[in-house]
């Protein structure tokens, strides 16, 4: 069993599901011969043919709209948006159609489609290639937004996303596509959606995050441990709908919470988590909830992007502020 990266785990999950389910097709720009600009679909067209791994004309509205049509007729299209910044033309089809087809037709038609996209900053990419737009998708009722943070979770969650009977936006943290390798068995076993993963147990403070920020958050937990502070780290993974039970349970134990995300602070997913904690766990809180996030600016060009991104230092700083309250 080989050790693989997150992006290789994506490929492995796609191949597994295409093998198992003839209705699964991969659909997007450059996904075929080229294997995707990040190589997420490398080799798939060779293995499954050009009727299963389909290079499309350059038209994101078309990609999303045709996936709605295919899904409504019993297929399971897995679209690739080349970068998260090119997903915006897809909004009409995702929001007005994919997310509400089941509801509008009282279940007569459904839309089991997935839109995958490389997502987030930190790779020195050109303009419009580095957004963290998960809150955009998380806000709309009727679809799931899922973000893996390791090779094994990428494999298990993508399988679950493809098998899910409703639409899923699957955002792949491109900064950690090749950061760590993990042994992942091609077992076909999915991981549950709508569930948080506790990555590190702790008793003094809860650090809540997802995607590439798991890297800095785990580093911060380690730095805090060196100061004698025990931090629990939660990877939210499915940011819509959010498994608040796991987060609340942790905060009931620690009484302190810092939420970390790369996206802008205003109306970010962190705001929803903080509000839910205020609603459901305020008597367990010993300190205000802090958010460590990207800023409410556009994502800067790459020379400044690391000043935008939350760092281990910023997370530790926020944790220390929260820990001052007795």
């Amino acid at each position: 069993m080989a050790e693989i990266t997150l992006v290789e785990a994506v490929t492995m999950a796609l191949a597994h599901e295409m093998e198992q389910d003839p209705t699964v097709v991969v659909f997007g720009e450059d996904v075929g011969v080229n294997g995707g600009v990040f190589r997420a679909t490398a080799g798939l067209q060779k293995q499954f043919g050009d009727e299963r791994v389909i290079d499309t004309p350059l038209a994101e509205v078309m990609i999303a709209g045709m996936c709605v049509g295919m899904a409504a007729q019993g297929m399971k299209p897995v679209a690739e948006a080349q970068f998260e910044g090119f997903m915006y033309p897809m909004v009409d089809h995702l929001v007005n159609h994919a997310a509400r087809l089941r509801h509008r037709t009282r279940g007569r038609l459904t839309c089991p489609m997935v839109v995958r996209a490389p997502w987030g900053g930190g790779i020195h990419a050109p303009e419009h290639h580095s957004d963290s737009n998960e809150a955009t998708w998380a806000h709309f009722p009727g679809m799931r937004t899922v973000i893996p943070s390791s090779p094994s979770r990428a494999y298990g969650l993508l399988l679950a996303a493809i098998r899910d009977p409703d639409p899923v936006v699957f955002l792949e943290p491109k900064r950690i596509y090749r950061w760590q390798k993990e042994t992942v068995e091609d077992s076909g076993e999915e991981l549950p959606l709508d569930v948080c993963f506790v990555l590190r147990d702790g008793t003094d403070i809860t650090l809540v995050t997802w995607g590439a920020m798991v890297k800095e958050t785990m580093e911060a937990a380690q730095a805090l441990a060196e100061q004698g502070i025990s931090a629990e780290v939660i990877d939210v993974a499915t940011v819509a709908p959010i498994d608040m039970d796991t987060i609340i349970e942790s905060v009931e134990k620690t009484g302190r919470c810092v939420i970390v995300h790369e996206a802008p602070k205003h109306c970010g997913v962190g705001a929803e988590i903080a509000a839910s904690l205020a609603d459901n766990a305020i008597w367990h809180l010993k300190a205000p909830i802090k958010r460590v996030t990207g800023y409410d600016t556009v994502m800067p060009l790459y020379r400044n992007e690391m000043n935008y991104m939350p760092s281990c230092k910023r997370i530790v700083h926020a944790a220390e502020q929260v820990l001052r309250f007795e």
């Binding site: 045709m66 049509g69 409504a72 007005n96």
Partner: peptide, 18 residues
């Protein structure tokens, strides 16, 4: 929403073709 149905039909046509 206007004209979005054109792409849903194209997607259905793609499914029948496949």
């Amino acid at each position: 929403p206007i004209a979005t149905q054109c792409l849903h039909a194209a997607g259905a046509a793609m499914a029948y073709k496949l």
